[in-house]
């Protein structure tokens, strides 16, 4: 598709000649600014925590942070390797979860909600509705690299596998100091986090399409229609879960870091 140079947007010939590029008087800039700050802070936190390779596991209660799961190397703290140690010594600064974190990041990066959020806040395309974007030409998601947004569903499949791994990690967190059943505040935080991660993952637009959205005859597929309805309910709150899970991941990781480093003790309900 050929693109001619900047054509003036709202100042294009024939349109009402209004000097101001936007006449919006509300604080339209606030939402993209907040999104920009929060996403940047989250990425910085995740990068630092995942690279540190420190305070990611509480051996007494089996708490493993999602930022280091699955831990598959001999460098991992004993007990944190829920899936064995197929890899030898792990290089410094490379996250233990280097096999899964890129897929999780790509799942969120290509997510339809996050796309809206960062196109607005990072790329200003557009920063807000009826506010002109900052770019002279626009080809949307028709060319490389943005055409790769169409791969979202593959990262969705990967995210399902990773959510299963996180769920398995939670089962390990139901452990007391003596090795028997136990329940602490950390267990509940890990459990809440994984439930929220499932709500976000299964509410994905690709999941909605795969489950039933691609059908034209719902009446011939009553079970898939039912499942499509359930996914639709989660999908309607996809933005909410996208934000909540960013927070729940940080809370989970920070709690485990604090307990693991001995800064605070875990509040135990049972054993």
């Amino acid at each position: 598709m050929a693109h001619v140079p900047f054509s003036g947007g709202v100042h294009a010939p024939g349109r009402a000649r209004i000097a101001a590029r936007t006449l919006r008087e509300d604080r339209w800039w606030l939402q993209p600014l907040v999104t920009f700050v929060c996403f940047s802070a989250w990425l910085l936190y995740g990068l630092v925590r995942a690279s540190l390779q420190k305070d990611y596991f509480v051996a007494d209660y089996g708490y493993l942070t999602p930022f280091a799961s699955p831990c598959l190397s001999t460098s991992c703290v004993p007990g944190s390797t829920h899936f064995g140690t197929p890899f030898g010594e792990w290089p410094a600064l490379i996250p233990f979860a280097a096999l899964t974190l890129p897929f999780l990041l790509l799942f969120r990066l290509t997510c339809y909600y996050y796309r809206k959020a960062y196109y607005r806040s990072f790329w200003m395309s557009p920063p807000a509705c009826a506010v002109p974007e900052a770019h002279v030409s626009y080809s949307g998601e028709t060319r490389f690299p943005l055409i790769a947004q169409n791969l979202h569903r593959y990262f969705f499949y990967a995210a399902v596998v990773i959510s299963l791994i996180n769920t398995y990690d939670v089962l390990h967190a139901f452990r007391g100091k003596d090795g028997g059943f136990g329940l602490g505040l950390g267990t509940l935080i890990l459990l809440a986090n994984v439930v929220l991660l499932w709500c976000y993952t299964l509410g994905c637009h690709s999941c909605r399409n795969i489950i039933g959205g691609r059908l034209n005859h719902f009446s011939k597929h009553p079970l898939r229609y039912k499942a499509w309805g359930w996914v639709g309910k989660l999908n309607a709150r996809h933005m909410t879960f996208a934000w909540i899970t960013l927070g729940s991941l940080v809370v989970t990781d920070a709690y485990i870091a604090l307990v693991s480093s001995g800064t605070i003790g875990d509040f135990r309900f049972i054993n």
Binding site: M1, V4, F6
Partner: peptide, 14 residues
């Protein structure tokens, strides 16, 4: 309101 055509007159044909 769609910025694809609001901000880029040249996108209208496509």
């Amino acid at each position: 309101v769609c910025h694809v055509v609001r901000d880029h007159e040249d996108n209208k044909p496509a």
